[in-house]
Amino acid sequence: MASLPITQWPTAQAEIVPFPRPRLVAVETVEPAVEPARLSALEWSVVALAERDTVASLREPGRIAAALESLFGLHRPNKLANPRLEVLRRLAVFAWRQGWKVPKSELQAFLAEGFTLDHYELVQASIAASRTPARKRGANR
């Protein structure tokens, strides 16, 4: 086994340089709290009422269709007076009838009214859960 020769210790004291004390710096690492997407009771009732509407109820009737409707007393679902709720109703109708195949223009209008993609996913998940048969829902408890 090889070894290195031991040299004599230096006789002069080596100058000891003290290290500066470490400084503690406060760092804000808390992420901002993200509120989960929620709908009000009124908005949920709009989603529930949209189940009965058809995609045809979203189109504006032409002059002939309007005349035939008034002549034969046919009823078309009224638009909601609140534009935010009407956009929600339109999106919910597409979600009930076509699932995730919502037209891009409807989704853009939905987002323009102040809803988020989390709201969209919440509506879609709620509708999908309501389509599940009751016995399957009961088995997951």
Rank of each mutant, 00 (worst) to 15 (best):
R97F: 06
A128W: 12
R89E: 12
G62Q: 06
A125R: 14
R63K: 14
A92N: 05
Q124R: 13
F19R: 10
L24H: 05
E28N: 11
A26V: 12
W9I: 11
E60N: 02
A65C: 01
R97Y: 05
A129K: 12
P5R: 15
E28T: 10
R59S: 09
V55T: 10
A37G: 06
S70A: 15
A41R: 13
W9F: 14
S105W: 04
A37Q: 01
T7K: 12
L107N: 03
L74K: 06
L80T: 01
V55F: 04
A33L: 15
A112V: 08
A56K: 13
E28D: 13
R76S: 06
P103R: 08
N82E: 13
D53M: 15
P32I: 09
R38M: 09
F115H: 03
E15D: 11
P83I: 05
L39H: 06
A95K: 01
P103L: 08
R90E: 03
W96V: 02
E106M: 11
Q124G: 01
T54S: 12
E35C: 07
R97E: 05
K101L: 06
P22I: 13
F110E: 03
P20Q: 05
A66R: 15
Y120Q: 09
N82V: 14
H75R: 13
F72K: 02
P5E: 15
R90G: 00
G73C: 04
A50H: 02
W44N: 01
A37E: 07
V17Q: 09
V47C: 03
A112C: 08
E86L: 10
Q98L: 12
A129I: 09
Q108T: 11
Q124N: 01
P103D: 04
V25N: 03
L117A: 04
S57R: 09
E43D: 00
Q13Y: 09
A41Y: 05
L122Q: 03
A12T: 13
G62V: 04
L74G: 01
A65M: 03
R97D: 02
A26Y: 11
T29W: 14
L80Q: 05
A67P: 00
Y120P: 02
R52S: 13
S126V: 09
G73H: 05
A26H: 06
T29S: 07
E69G: 11
F19T: 08
A26L: 13
V25P: 01
P103A: 06
S70E: 14
V30C: 12
R76C: 00
E106C: 13
P5V: 15
V102H: 01
Q108H: 07
T54G: 07
P10E: 13
L91E: 03
A12S: 09
A33T: 15
R52E: 11
E113F: 06
A65H: 08
E51C: 13
V87R: 11
H75N: 05
L74P: 00
E69T: 10
L68M: 12
R63D: 05
P77E: 11
V55A: 10
L88V: 06
H75F: 07
P32T: 10
A14K: 13
R38N: 01
W44E: 08
R52H: 12
D53A: 15
G99Y: 07
L49N: 10
V93Q: 02
A41K: 14
A37K: 06
L80S: 01
V47L: 08
L39R: 03
L71G: 00
V55R: 14
L107D: 01
P83Y: 10
